[in-house]
Design a protein around this nucleic acid. Structure first.
Lengths: 94, 94
DNA sequence: TAGATATATTGACATTTGTCTATATATCTT
DNA sequence: AAGATATATAGACAAATGTCAATATATCTA
């Protein structure tokens, strides 16, 4: 994994609220959830949620797909696995 | 793992320079390295290195032990493993 | 005991970042 | 077409953060 992506992922995971959103998406019934539903689970403004979803998307931790006026997100498991592997690799673990 | 620690570790890992320092410690010959040696591998001031080492220590990612006027650090593998496990757990992975 | 070396702390500063309100854009529904 | 709903963007702001120079503290050595 490239430095740039490695750092992007680490940063995306580092904010508590943003990680909470990621967790919410991961825990969603259908494995996907739309922006509005995320907003309901959180105490910040819609613009802030939109911002966090963008960050998570740019880190490739989630993947968006539109259905009409709704935008759904799914967790990108591969990126997470890659990140965990890369972290171990860089720290010479197991 | 408690929320507080989980966040602390994530934040500690999120800064590129700080992660680089962690990597340097992990890669050290003897498995331990003192502050001054870390300084040599990096382009920032000694005060900045000291600050990052403190952050890593507070996140329990490294453990300090003094030998005279030197302060050595070793990587705390347990914390890293715990963090990886917790991350998977929170995202419902494998 | 002095001076040298190693690390920590303080205080300042600039940048980054999370947040908001207001507004724009896009899609749906009647 | 018009209003309603969903999401994105712009701009502003405060708080957090990485950085530094200067200084303090602690330990070593001659």
């Amino acid at each position: 994994m490239e430095d740039r992506k490695f750092q992007k992922v680490a940063k995306a995971l580092a904010d508590p609220r943003r990680f909470g959103i990621l967790q919410t998406i991961a825990a969603s019934e259908a494995g996907k959830i739309c922006s509005g539903q995320v907003c309901e689970t959180v105490t910040v403004a819609q613009a802030t949620v939109s911002h966090h979803l963008k960050e998570l998307t740019e880190a490739d931790l989630i993947t968006p797909h539109c259905e009409g006026q709704f935008k759904f997100f799914t967790v990108n498991l591969e990126t997470i696995d890659e990140y965990l592997g890369e972290l171990k690799k860089r720290l010479n673990l197991k």
